[in-house]
């Protein structure tokens, strides 16, 4: 079976066409094709059915209107027109943007601080890392419930502690100006451990020689951080930013569990995905929901592209 392979060196050089012909009839290559296609088949077919075709279906649905029995009819761009005229949609977009733009920088800044502090040889470093990581493995719906309790205006621990130092705590989850930021705090809390371990591995990739050189120049640890650590960490920051952006734009669990569909501040807090869920599965506006999903897709795509373009300006690859 392997004779062709073994004989090859002794043969005169074949011209390309002959070689191609030879390859076509080589039983081993045919075997390769067979195994190649067979092994990707389940995943590729599954993705076609559950992920790729649905994109086109959702696109199609976004031009339809749905009746109560699952019947739908083509209505052209009506859903998009309605969406762009819908203050709820703009509100959801605004909420999502604020949530994203506040959560990500705070989470990244705090997790860099945590990573730098925990990248030293100090006592209890493993324990600290473990504790900081706990929220990452905790079910978001449980997280939301705990924070809802902590935020409770009457019996919540947070307002009691604030009261103890003379601050009158707000109504965290019912004040329309505050509720969105209450979500941000929880999101930052939940993201720190996740980002921290990525930054830690980024920090460990920075060669010690840089710091040794700086030590000869007499640089202090703050200077080290600004001029060595931070620039060399920019690829990691970029990676974390991209990942966090995509995640933040899809926020749902916190809105659904901590605020809830019946809250008086739901309009001031609902995210784009929550609006999608509400329209698709609570109001049966599936066509409209599909249009929302498409817009979300486009926004995430655009933001990612912009980030990719901008990275040349601030990311250092050594």
């Amino acid at each position: 079976m392997n004779s062709t392979e073994l004989d090859l060196p002794r043969q005169p050089v074949l011209d390309e066409r002959k070689q191609a012909k030879k390859r076509r009839f080589n039983p081993r290559t045919r075997g390769d094709y067979f195994w190649g296609y067979l092994m990707i088949a389940p995943t590729v077919l599954g993705l076609l059915v559950f992920s790729i075709w649905p994109v086109f279906q959702t696109l199609y649905f976004s031009f339809t209107s749905w009746g109560s029995f699952g019947n739908y009819e083509w209505t052209g761009t009506d859903n998009y027109k309605a969406m762009f005229a819908d203050p709820m949609f703009w509100m959801a977009l605004r909420n999502t943007f604020i949530y994203t733009c506040v959560t990500i920088p705070c989470a990244i800044a705090l997790s860099i601080v945590a990573a730098v502090l925990l990248n030293q040889k100090i006592r209890g470093v493993t324990l600290y890392r473990t504790l900081y990581f706990l929220p990452v493995v905790t079910m978001p719906s449980a997280v939301a419930m705990v924070w809802k309790w902590l935020y409770n205006a009457d019996y919540g621990l947070i307002n009691y502690l604030l009261g103890a130092i003379g601050i009158k705590g707000p109504s965290w989850l019912t004040d329309p100006d505050i509720a969105l930021y209450s979500m941000v705090i929880v999101a930052v809390w939940a993201a720190i451990g996740n980002n921290m371990v990525i930054f830690l591995s980024g920090l460990q990739g920075i060669p010690v020689s840089y710091y040794e050189a700086a030590a000869i120049d007499g640089a202090g640890s703050f200077k080290n951080f600004i001029f060595i650590t931070l620039p060399l960490l920019t690829p990691t920051i970029f990676f974390v930013t991209i990942i966090s952006l995509i995640g933040a734009f899809q926020v749902f669990d916190l809105v659904f569990m901590m605020i809830g569909p019946n809250s008086i501040v739901i309009e001031q807090t609902q995210s784009v995905v929550f609006l999608f869920y509400k329209n698709a599965f609570m109001l049966n506006n599936k066509g409209y929901a599909a249009a929302i999903a498409m817009v979300l897709f486009v926004i995430i795509l655009l933001v990612t592209i912009v980030q990719m373009k901008l990275q040349k300006k601030w990311v250092h690859y050594s």
Binding site: M39, V44, P54, V55, A293, F297
Partner: peptide
């Protein structure tokens, strides 16, 4: 394994990563 169309199919698979999961939910449902 080398087989015809490998790169094209792989790029199609990768393109799935670009799509937020909410896009799939209605049709999957």
């Amino acid at each position: 394994i080398e087989f015809p169309g490998r790169n094209v199919i792989f790029i199609i698979v990768l393109s799935v990563l670009m799509v937020p999961s909410q896009i799939h939910i209605l049709p999957q449902y």
